[in-house]
Simulated assay, not measured.
Amino acid sequence: MRWISIGTIAAAVTAAGMVAGLAAPNRAPQLADRPDDSKTVDVELILAVDVSYSMDMDELAVQREGYAQALRSSEFLKTLKTGPTGRIAVTYFEWAAAGDQKIILPWQIIDGPESADSVANEIMNAPLRRASRTSISGAINFAVPLFDQNPYHGLRRVIDISGDGPNNNGEPVTMARDAAVEKGVVINGLPIMVKEPSYSTMDIENLDYYYEDCVIGGPGAFVVTIKSRDKFKEAIRTKLVMEVAGLTPPGWIVPIAGQEKSARVSCLVGEKIWQDRWGR
């Protein structure tokens, strides 16, 4: 695949000057066009995190720690201040089946080290949980209305989906993705591929292809793949920095609008596996 190493991506965002000098895609109207600038943020960012049973407790803990450490990192805090407002609005929820989503962090503003630390603590202090099924479409459909339920006006609206398997519950993921993108939302992906595909956990090979072709969408959408446990935290930090800065990974090929990519992985592969095994 078009494998882009985390180190390569990180090199593109560590220089604050470069981050500040790059324009973010899909920007909303400028600050002067907003009726209340005090509610304007650079990004409305939704962190949607998979807690299905295919994720073991250690992975769930490392994933949580990864987000908390990313928010406290100097790279993230430096990038935060390169935007027009120097602040973002963020919410964090966990998801499994189509009707199973739990908000861990309600919408909050991050505008510096103190607020970032407060958000990180709130994420870390919530009890870990696991649940059945995997509905990426359910997570997207749950996420989109959250943008209209907060008082902030983001120059960009981004959903960050992390997970270790394909959609196997709820409506097809492409339907949810396309509906979100039509509303101006960008969906980025963090496919977790730290274990060998297992029949018992409904893992698939080439989950990165699946996320690229079936999950992400919108101008500048991208995937950062995690292929080893020791890269969890680095990948999450890199991804958050890029989302705040509005960057796309170096060498990432963004298809021309309306141009269909040839299918590499069926976007219904998860549903098919579930049907073949349990007939429902």
Rank of each mutant, 00 (worst) to 15 (best):
T79L: 08
T79I: 03
T79V: 10
L80E: 05
K81M: 03
K81W: 00
K81E: 03
K81G: 03
T82M: 05
T82H: 01
G83K: 02
G83S: 02
G83V: 02
G83C: 04
G83T: 02
P84T: 02
P84V: 04
P84L: 11
P84F: 01
P84A: 13
T85E: 10
T85K: 15
T85G: 06
T85Q: 14
T85D: 03
G86V: 06
G86Q: 10
R87I: 03
R87M: 07
R87N: 06
R87T: 03
I88E: 02
I88S: 03
I88F: 01
I88N: 04
I88L: 04
I88M: 06
A89R: 02
A89V: 09
A89K: 00
V90K: 00
V90D: 07
V90S: 02
V90A: 04
V90R: 01
T91S: 09
T91I: 08
T91A: 04
T91G: 05
Y92F: 15
F93T: 02
F93A: 09
F93Q: 13
F93H: 12
E94F: 07
E94C: 10
W95N: 10
W95C: 08
W95Q: 05
W95S: 04
A96V: 10
A96M: 14
A96W: 13
A96S: 15
A96G: 05
A96K: 09
A96Y: 09
A97L: 13
A97K: 12
A97G: 15
A97W: 14
A97F: 13
A97S: 15
A97N: 14
A97E: 11
A97T: 11
A97R: 14
A98V: 11
A98Q: 12
A98I: 04
A98E: 12
G99P: 05
G99T: 09
G99F: 00
G99D: 15
G99I: 00
D100L: 11
D100N: 12
D100K: 12
D100S: 13
D100W: 10
D100R: 10
Q101D: 07
Q101H: 13
Q101K: 13
K102V: 14
K102R: 14
K102I: 15
I103A: 12
I103W: 01
I103S: 09
I104S: 01
I104M: 05
I104W: 05
I104N: 05
I104P: 06
I104H: 03
I104T: 11
L105R: 05
L105Y: 11
P106Y: 15
W107R: 03
Q108I: 08
Q108Y: 08
Q108R: 14
I109W: 06
I109P: 02
I109F: 01
I109T: 11
I110D: 01
I110P: 03
D111S: 11
D111M: 09
G112I: 00
G112T: 01
G112M: 06
G112E: 05
G112A: 07
P113C: 09
P113Y: 14
P113Q: 12
E114R: 13
E114N: 04
E114A: 08
E114H: 06
E114Q: 14
